[in-house]
Structure formats: structure tokens, C-alpha cells
């Protein structure tokens, strides 16, 4: 354990952790744009700088480990001045369009500008002016909004292992790019959207089918309904529609999803959905009430059971339905119809 002093107060923390980790655990809020606990420290945005007694320079808390006896100031005047300067520089080279920006309301740059009172960018000069990459069917990359935190690149390589994007050129011209700047569609990108999930600003944004502001949606945590991995995710709900999906940072997926889980949700509110029971009469489906449908099924069950016995019945339960539903289904066949002819597509 290391004894350290943060903002004049003494704490005991685990050895070998970074100052940022220590502060997170102690509930001391340090701003950062490039940090993600799942990734290697990167110290690109420098927003997490803190003052350490005895050091001339401010240090990035995400990459500096605690040492016994360390005295740290996380919100001193000097630190705050430095953070303001960084935010000012970032926003000076950022489009001022929070009015309609899709990220507004969940943008880290916006959050910190509000917190540190940066009302506008005071550096007047050249601004980035790149074309948008809209080649991917599920998301857009707007390099002009990119703050070069590198999270997308690192998630793509360190976590997703796809390496579709990288940083190109230097200095003012640095840009997140695909090989030869050919666009996402022709890259190795597998459209998992894990880069979109970590972008702190509006540079990587899902293409929306329904327009909504970040503050208009509810988030409901649930389990993905595609493969057997069982990724945890949030359904974004506006009114009676699911308008988006975001990964949840918990087991087993720890904040990652694949293209189907992340973007394959439009079937939910699809117009083709069955909305009423159908009964086939003379080879044609006719809409029916639930009562009519139930009555018909029950009378057929009784009729066939009377004539042929319970083993003339078979049920295909579903690897797509919940445990509770599967339980009821097999119980219905076994206890109420009287046969063990229940199976599902485990083998397919």
C-alpha cells in the first residue's frame, strides 16, 4: 500500500496503480478524453494533468503511478488553467455546432467545456476541413470533429483486434484514417461499431434512422438476442421504438459488441412484424382474435388427442425464446398434452 495525499487529504491506496485509478476509486473526478480502463494508458489528451509536489511539470494522472508519500493536487489553480487551455485549443479547432450535433448531450468535450467554463474557442486560425467518410452503412466518420484521442484506433487494435484504422500524418495534419485513406467500406472494418462506442465526441456517430437527441432516449439493459455469447447491451428507446443499441461494460462482453448486436435491431419495429393472430381458412390467412385462435387450437388438441393419443403431438420449442418460455413449452407438452416429443434446433 502507498500513503498519498490528494488535495490535502491523506489516503492509503494500492501500490502500482495510476493516480487516475486512485482518484477514480476515491471518487475524485478527474477529466479525461483519451482514457479507457480497458486500454493501455496513452496520455494523449493531457486533460487529466495534476500537480505533484516536487515536480516542476504537471503530470498526466493516467500514466503516472502513485508512489508512497506523493502529494497531489487535482484541481489547483495551475491545473485548472492548464485544462482550460487544452479545452480552448481543442474547441478552437472543432466545429461549433452543438445546436444540432447528434452527440450533444453525451459529448465529453461539451461536458468539460461546461464544467471548466470554456464558452468559445479563442484561438482563431485554420480549422480542419476534411470530407466525411460515409461509406460504412452503419456509421459516419467526421474527421473535423475528431480530437485525436486515439481511442477508436486503440479499441480497434487492442480490444477488437481488427486493425482497420490508424493515425496518419503528423501535427496539425494528423488524422484517423484507413489505409491509403480509402474509406471504411474498403478497409478491414467489420462494422462492429466498437470505435463508435468509445468516441468521446461526435466524430464517429451511428447513422440514425429515427432522429432523436441524446436526452430524449431511455436506456434499458438487456441481453443480445443473436448468438450464444450473451453480450450485455442497452436498448435506446424513444417513445415506443428501439432507436439504437449501445454496449454495456459488464461480463461477458465488457463493452464490446459485433455488427449484428450493435446495428441489427431494426427488425424490432419492422412493419412486417406479426401483429395479430392469423387463422388459415380455405388456404388463406385471415386475421383473428386471440380467443378464436386459442379456441381453435384447444379444440384441435382435444380432437387429435382423442383420436390418436398424445404421441401424435410434437412441439418445437425455441433456442430464441427465454428460459421461462422454454420451461412452459415443455411443461405444456409433457404435463398437459402428455408426450415427450419436444425438441428444438440445438443441432442446427
Amino acid at each position: 500500500m502507498a500513503n498519498i495525499i490528494i488535495n490535502g487529504k491523506g489516503y492509503q491506496v494500492e501500490d502500482g496503480i495510476t493516480i487516475l485509478e486512485a482518484c477514480n476509486r476515491l471518487g475524485i473526478d478527474i477529466p479525461t478524453l483519451c482514457h479507457d480502463e480497458r486500454l493501455e494508458p496513452y496520455a494523449a489528451c493531457r486533460l487529466c494533468v495534476v500537480e505533484i509536489k516536487g515536480k516542476g511539470k504537471l503530470e498526466t494522472s493516467c500514466s503516472t503511478k502513485v508512489r508512497d508519500g506523493m502529494e497531489i493536487e487535482t484541481h489547483s489553480e495551475r491545473v485548472i488553467r492548464a485544462r482550460k487551455e487544452i479545452l480552448d485549443l481543442l474547441f478552437s479547432n472543432h466545429p461549433n455546432d452543438c445546436l444540432t450535433c447528434e452527440k450533444s448531450g453525451e459529448c465529453k468535450l461539451q461536458d468539460y467545456c461546461y464544467e471548466y467554463g470554456i464558452v468559445e474557442g479563442t484561438y482563431i486560425g485554420e480549422k480542419k476541413n476534411y470530407p466525411l467518410d460515409e461509406s460504412n452503412p452503419f456509421y459516419t466518420f467526421d474527421p473535423n470533429k475528431c480530437i485525436l484521442c486515439g481511442k477508436c484506433v486503440r479499441v480497434c487494435s487492442e480490444l477488437q483486434g481488427t486493425n482497420a484504422i490508424g493515425l496518419k500524418d503528423r501535427g496539425f495534419d494528423t488524422k484517423v484514417s484507413t489505409p491509403f485513406d480509402m474509406g471504411l467500406a474498403t478497409s478491414k472494418c467489420v462494422s462492429c461499431g466498437n470505435c463508435v462506442a468509445v468516441c468521446p465526441v461526435g466524430a464517429l456517430m451511428p447513422k440514425k434512422r429515427e432522429r432523436y437527441r441524446a436526452w430524449e432516449v431511455r436506456r434499458v439493459k438487456t441481453t443480445c438476442s443473436y448468438c450464444g455469447v450473451g453480450c450485455q447491451m442497452y436498448l435506446l428507446v424513444k417513445g415506443d421504438k428501439v432507436v439504437g443499441v449501445e454496449p454495456a461494460k459488464s461480463r461477458p462482453n465488457n463493452g464490446l459488441l459485433c455488427v449484428k448486436g450493435r446495428f441489427g435491431y431494426n427488425f424490432i419495429n419492422h412493419p412486417d412484424r406479426l401483429k395479430t393472430p392469423l387463422i388459415k381458412r380455405n388456404g388463406k390467412f385471415e386475421e383473428a382474435t386471440w380467443e378464436e385462435a386459442y379456441d381453435l387450437i384447444v379444440s384441435k388438441i382435444n380432437e387429435i388427442k382423442g383420436k390418436y393419443g398424445p404421441d401424435a403431438f410434437a412441439g418445437l420449442t425455441s433456442a430464441r425464446c427465454t428460459n421461462e418460455e422454454n420451461y412452459l413449452f415443455q411443461k405444456m407438452f409433457r404435463a398437459l398434452i402428455g408426450t415427450n416429443n419436444v425438441d428444438h434446433c440445438a443441432r442446427l
Binding site: 452543438c98 445546436l99 448531450g105
Partner: peptide
């Protein structure tokens, strides 16, 4: 003024709401 970045009304502002809805920008 174009200061939705930090404007206290942002998120509840009707001008912002309609600008978004009708896709009108500064």
C-alpha cells in the same frame, strides 16, 4: 449567439429543438 456548447438552456431550448427538427444551422 452560437453557444449551445455551454448554454444553460441547451437540452430544453425550443429554438434548439426546432433547429434540430428542421435541420437549420447557424
Amino acid at each position: 449567439p452560437n453557444d449551445c456548447l455551454t448554454c444553460q438552456k441547451a437540452g430544453e431550448c425550443l429554438l434548439q429543438k426546432y433547429a434540430y427538427e428542421y435541420d437549420v444551422k447557424f
